[in-house]
């Protein structure tokens, strides 16, 4: 239970219930759908670029508190970053969840997304936390093609 209450903390709850990032952009350059067929979670990410910089981002969709808040926090963290920086942050987040980060200092660049660190103690929920990050990774990879 302790782990769980740590996980369902204010950052995650606020972002999951009433996220200001949950909306559609007036105009966007790229969008990508992500879903977990086993649980039915679905998100749509929208990205507006200014040159190499992620100028604006938003999401729509539905899912559990973990998937929704993870998406919203990711948007907060990635907004204003360059594509290169974003890719690096995404990789760090995924590695944090997989417990593959040796140097805790590396996690600083994740800002609020560090709130999801303990999800690695709940294997059943890992895919919820990763949905948005994998979807964004996919979007950025496609953009490079």
């Amino acid at each position: 239970m302790d782990n769980l209450e740590e996980l369902y903390n204010d950052i995650i709850m606020e972002h999951s219930m009433n996220s200001y990032n949950k909306k559609e952009l007036k105009s966007c350059d790229f969008c990508e759908m992500g879903h977990n067929p086993n649980c039915g979670d679905e998100i749509k990410l929208e990205v507006k670029l200014n040159g190499d910089i992620i100028e604006d981002m938003a999401f729509t969709g539905h899912g559990c508190a973990i998937s929704q808040s993870s998406t919203s926090v990711m948007i907060d963290v990635l907004k204003g970053k360059t594509i290169k920086e974003a890719k690096d942050i995404i990789e760090t987040f995924i590695n944090m969840i997989k417990r593959e980060i040796k140097d805790e200092k590396e996690l600083e660049k994740l800002e609020d997304a560090i709130a999801f660190k303990n999800i690695s103690n709940m294997p059943a929920r890992v895919k919820c936390a990763l949905l948005a990050w994998h979807t964004m990774e996919e979007l950025l990879n496609k953009k490079g093609e």
Partner: peptide, 22 residues
């Protein structure tokens, strides 16, 4: 207002096994 996966995780932490999903 609460997603079933969140409910199931919290129930699990309290020793209650229920299924959540479709």
């Amino acid at each position: 207002g609460v997603h079933p996966h969140d409910v199931a995780s919290i129930l699990d932490a309290n020793g209650v096994c229920v299924r959540s999903g479709n």
